[in-house]
Design a protein around this nucleic acid. Structure first.
Lengths: 215, 215
DNA sequence: GGAATAGTGTCTGTTAGACACTATCTA
DNA sequence: TAGATAGTGTCTAACAGACACTATTCC
């Protein structure tokens, strides 16, 4: 299949997964501590080599399942990274996929090829990450921030039923700025409907629960 | 390098280029008529296999230069397509790049591996295109339509100096709907400045020439 | 002056931003 | 009733949409 003419040698293709969630009022990304070289002992995004008989989406889901229990989640293709020396071993082109999940849906476990798995606060990343993964995470961070403004991706971070104070908090975390309560509610109210239920038990007024409107 | 285990066989990687421009008040895409199998005689996007020692961007520019004179143009990565059988020969993953150019900057010539090169009206594509290129073009068409609303990509279709009536026409073509002249001007005026020149010679009021503001 | 296109003024309804207010829970 | 958080009413300025008007050119 390969020969000495570089025109006919194929680069390897990987998929790197970014699983984002919100925990402790912070945007976090699932990362794994590498067991093997290169970058042994460093944090990296979970990733897999793309098999010859699977699509990128299938590879992405396979990668996610190695460390988590996730299925039926929202994810989208982010960008394809191709710097020549992004992997010190050989030429590797990586397609990044981004998943957004509510914290309650996510449980994770250490995979075979990893030392540990953890949720890393995106605004407080370790100084050095494996490969070009810092760049990839920053790219994703930016995409999220932008899309929050003109799409409904923020809803992927909350469960089916949610309170408006919490949804607002999510928006504030993703946008990185405070919002006016009354204005936020006026804008968001058209996309949601009351479930009829409320939270209760705290020493203050309970908040109503909402779900997204189907329309 | 490769063996019988499919886990270690690499898919081939190509870059497909979409060069968009506006001609005769229509959005058009540069396409080539294929000389070789597969899909000989059919229209397809210009594309190249990615060399082991070049980035995707470098490959994209190389692909563009085979049929055009373009350099220093605007282009962005569009999406990576990975359907298993998108290429009947073998497994090929393709990264699509999209370039936007004013018609005056573009000249093109038939490359070595192609029968002819032409600008195809995007709203009136041939019934069948090679590979999954129809899907790719439609994806790009959508991206352009969306980004016109919240970015300044429309400016890439006009030359450095332009009239407001023409710029409005470009917006209308990209959005696929008519705009009110007064409202369009009010919105766009903050991003541009007069050159001091005007068009002239027609049997009507000449229009002022503008350029983009740097700020 | 007439045909044609360039360019402006303005009214209206909607929305973003800011802020002050009222409501409901538990201890 | 105090403390805490949920939720509402409203003013203002900015903006989008719609439309009617004026301006400049060449014949």
């Amino acid at each position: 299949m390969s020969n000495n003419n570089h025109e006919y040698e194929n680069p390897a293709v990987t998929v790197d997964m970014l699983v984002f969630t919100i925990e402790d009022e912070q945007l976090k990304c699932l990362m794994v501590k590498r067991k093997e070289e290169p970058y042994a002992g460093m944090w990296s995004l979970p990733g897999v080599f793309v098999h010859i008989d699977e699509t990128l989406e299938e590879a992405a889901l396979r990668g996610i399942r190695e460390e988590t229990n996730l299925s039926g989640i929202y994810f989208e293709q982010l960008y394809t990274f191709s710097d020549i020396h992004r992997d010190p071993r050989k030429r590797v082109i990586s397609v990044a996929y981004m998943a957004l999940v509510p914290r309650e849906k996510l449980t994770f476990c250490t995979g075979e090829r990893t030392e540990s798995v953890s949720l890393i606060h995106v605004n407080n990343l370790p100084e050095k990450l494996a490969f070009d993964h810092k760049k990839i995470i920053e790219y994703a961070r930016n995409r999220i921030k932008n899309k929050v403004e003109y799409t409904d991706i923020a809803f992927h971070f909350v469960s089916e039923e949610f309170t408006l104070p919490y949804l607002q908090k999510v928006y504030e975390i993703l946008l990185g700025k405070a919002l006016y309560k009354a204005n936020f509610r006026k804008k968001i109210i058209t996309y949601i409907e009351e479930t009829g239920e409320s939270t209760a038990g705290d020493a203050h007024r309970p908040s109503k629960l909402y779900r997204r409107k189907k329309s």
